[in-house]
């Protein structure tokens, strides 16, 4: 299905909860309101015309130092969906403020969201509500801070940990 049709279908189904849509370099994306993200994801997965059955990627971007977005919502959680039967893709973006950095978890829809969300929590400090096991994934428990945040000091010394006895 053509990307524009996918976006039109999403807008028709969710109206104002799809904040904006755009098509840049052939990648079709929709900005989704945080309260609607689970509904939109579920709609994408179960709608007979869309059938996005693969959560290809889930990541986040910290827009703290992005020109023009210094004051806007700081984070953006990015979902890349792919449909095996229909062979089309779409990108969903959710903007999150720093002081309430949490998004509903998609683990109930796709089990792979478990690890993706753990990684985003680890790297960006964005919480996922309803996640069954939100531990750090790549870093160790004693690690302080979230390294992919733009204000993370790159030269920061981290606590050394010895073997656990």
């Amino acid at each position: 299905m053509d990307g524009q049709v996918i976006l039109a279908r999403l807008t028709a189904a969710f109206g104002g909860r799809i904040l904006e849509t755009h098509d840049y370099r052939g990648d079709h994306s929709a900005m989704v309101d945080r309260s609607a993200v689970l509904d939109v994801l579920e709609f994408c997965r179960d709608d007979p015309a869309l059938r996005f059955d693969v959560l290809m990627d889930l990541t986040a971007v910290d827009y703290l130092k992005y020109p023009g977005r210094e004051f806007g919502p700081r984070f953006e959680v990015v979902y890349h969906l792919y449909s095996l039967p229909c062979n089309h893709r779409v990108r969903l973006q959710v903007r999150v403020e720093e002081d309430e950095a949490h998004v509903p978890s998609a683990v109930g829809l796709w089990p792979i969201a478990n690890w993706f969300e753990r990684e985003v929590w680890d790297m960006f400090g964005i919480r996922f509500d309803g996640h069954p096991d939100l531990r750090r994934l790549l870093m160790y428990e004693e690690f302080e801070g979230h390294p992919l945040r733009k204000d993370y000091p790159v030269n920061k010394r981290q606590p050394l940990i010895g073997p656990r006895i």
């Binding site: 059955d53 693969v54 959560l55 290809m56 095996l84 796709w110 089990p111 792979i112």
Partner: peptide, 9 residues
């Protein structure tokens, strides 16, 4: 089904 749900390619 599991392979698809886990986004394995």
């Amino acid at each position: 089904e599991d392979t698809v749900a886990y986004a394995i390619t």
